[in-house]
Design a protein around this nucleic acid. Structure first.
Lengths: 331, 331
DNA sequence: TTGTATGCGTTATCAA
DNA sequence: TTGATAACGCATACAA
């Protein structure tokens, strides 16, 4: 197996210095057309292309971004990853997908990303407390952090998110007009951030309306299974006084699981007995089997803003983008 | 913003040469415990950790693997990515997620991965023809290729896959015993590889059984929507003589879409009027709304084998692992 | 065990 | 426009 060709080899073949070779591959460098052609031909012959690793070492720029993710159960992650990788690649960036779990926690992952000299770290749908960043091992010159699709309590870390207040207001006004009066909220395992945001906005609306205390249902994970379990648990044990006419779920995947239990296991009708609403507008929600009323996040705008901040084309500060309400048959 | 500490700075503080510092961070290097301690303490003080980029340049090993993926519609990709990133990280590898699309095709992506000096490229559920590799720009010393979750027609490129023949035999014998006699196959857009494999095995079984020519239904993408469209099209236009009693779908996401149309739009009963079978066992298939009879791929074994081959702990040759038949109510 | 010289393949800067 | 020198931060081989 022959070794890869280097600038030096190309230089020899073209009869120039290796710096001239570099120039031929540097947009905007000053080089004579004649020698440029010579170099490019030699490069083609030797099958040469610049070693990006060496370039990164010299420029202190890898054009790699680490994307941290800790939840692979929600299919909603997929369209996000699709847009994110696509937008990154269009800018010559590449996405390192980092799985945050018990064996590889945030601190671990941050140190590793730092060692690999990534240009930025995107916390996608995951977050941690301020203290984590105070770990002594996370020194200066640390890669820039961003929180995507989630609110951030972290100082100096911008969050790029869907406008939760706007979304929940739109949803609530719709539900209110439809006549729902005894709403419940099904939340996932997250105590903080977006989870909190959606729940808080929802609760605030109904308490302003003079509704009784919000009934809360807790799911253990963000998955259809967990949504189903939580729903079953609730319908089995809830006392008549906590009877509800609507379940607002933190996201679609919980809502799908919940709806199945409501209809198939308890023989109730959606939306006649209980209305149900999700969030995210995953592909399945459009399926008539679910017909889920939901809210679509503005993925493209969010991704665009994230990339722009990473590239320094946009100021590093939190933004919320308005999404789109998608009424269907479930509420 | 101070600069990152280097081995050189640590050496000065510890009063040793920088090579001794390197040794302190090289497992199995010969170094006196005393100087090791000195170095490690200085390193802690300066918040030093080795620059993996520089290391990669020197060792010619990045411990990065590129994972090519061209389909983000199928939720089945998510558990695979979860296992893959997790297993990779456990071995000190990191996954670069590369989105293959019209703007960034296989050749493009291969050249870029090569320039970034990745240790391996995993074609995950995507593939290309032999000719692609004959592109003159793809020279010697090219990163090692692997095809995951798909068969490969590419020479010298091992494919790690679920045992399709075994799976389809098990499925077919079950269906046969259940009394199905007029099966159809719904395929996705792929003309090659696994798609072909599942269809071929299915067709072969029924033709051996003396069944009429296999009815084929074509979906345009791998998504619930596409499965629904294909199903609607078929049920609307099929002549009575092509009446079928079973739809074997290439995967679950197509099956889910198809089932919805069968039940909700045509008022047919599953499995009484038409049975339906999928492949992959995505989370939703377990949902009673679908209750899909399906087949689960041995993700863990497949991922393990892939990583082992990349690390040279297993010989680079194609393997098929048996999965698990999951009978439910849909057939 | 430790220090020295050299190399990895680029980029940055300066001199010619 | 071109060539030369130095630097990026680490690893390898060898000598002390």
């Amino acid at each position: 197996m022959r070794k890869r060709a280097t600038a030096r080899a190309v230089a020899e073949m073209a009869g120039v210095s290796k710096w001239t070779v570099i120039r031929a591959f540097t947009p905007g460098a000053s080089i004579a057309p004649a020698s440029r052609d010579k170099v490019l031909e030699a490069a083609r012959n030797l099958n040469y292309s610049p070693n990006l690793l060496a370039r990164s070492l010299a420029t202190n720029l890898t054009r790699e971004i680490a994307v941290f993710i800790d939840d692979f159960a929600n299919p909603h992650k997929l369209p996000f990853l699709e847009r994110l990788t696509s937008a990154a690649q269009a800018e010559g960036l590449v996405v390192m997908l980092i799985n945050i779990n018990i064996h590889f926690d945030h601190v671990h992952a941050l140190i590793n990303a730092d060692q690999r000299q990534v240009d930025a770290v995107v916390l996608f749908g995951t977050s941690f407390r301020d203290e984590t960043l105070r770990d002594k091992r996370l020194g200066p010159g640390f890669p820039k952090l961003f929180v995507l699709a989630r609110d951030s309590q972290i100082k100096d870390v911008p969050a790029i998110n869907c406008d939760t207040e706007l979304a929940m207001r739109e949803i609530c006004e719709y539900l209110d007009a439809k006549g729902y009066r005894r709403p419940a909220f099904m939340a996932g395992p997250r105590a903080l951030s977006t989870a909190l945001g959606r729940r808080r906005c929802f609760r605030d609306y109904w308490s302003r309306k003079g509704s009784p205390d919000l009934v809360e249902i807790q799911a253990e994970r963000y998955s259809a299974q967990a949504g189903a379990d939580a729903m079953r648990q609730f319908l089995t044990t809830a006392s008549p006084k906590t009877r509800v006419d609507l379940i607002m779920c933190e996201n679609d995947i919980l809502a799908c699981g919940a709806k199945t239990v409501i209809c198939n296991e308890f023989g109730l009708s959606v939306p006649d007995d209980i209305g149900i609403v999700g969030f995210d507008n995953i592909e399945l929600s459009a399926d008539p089997a679910y017909g889920l009323t939901t809210y679509e996040q503005p993925i493209d705008e969010m991704v665009r803003a994230t990339i722009d901040m990473i590239l320094g084309r946009r100021s590093r500060q939190s933004v919320n983008f308005p999404g789109r309400f998608v009424p269907r048959s479930s509420a």
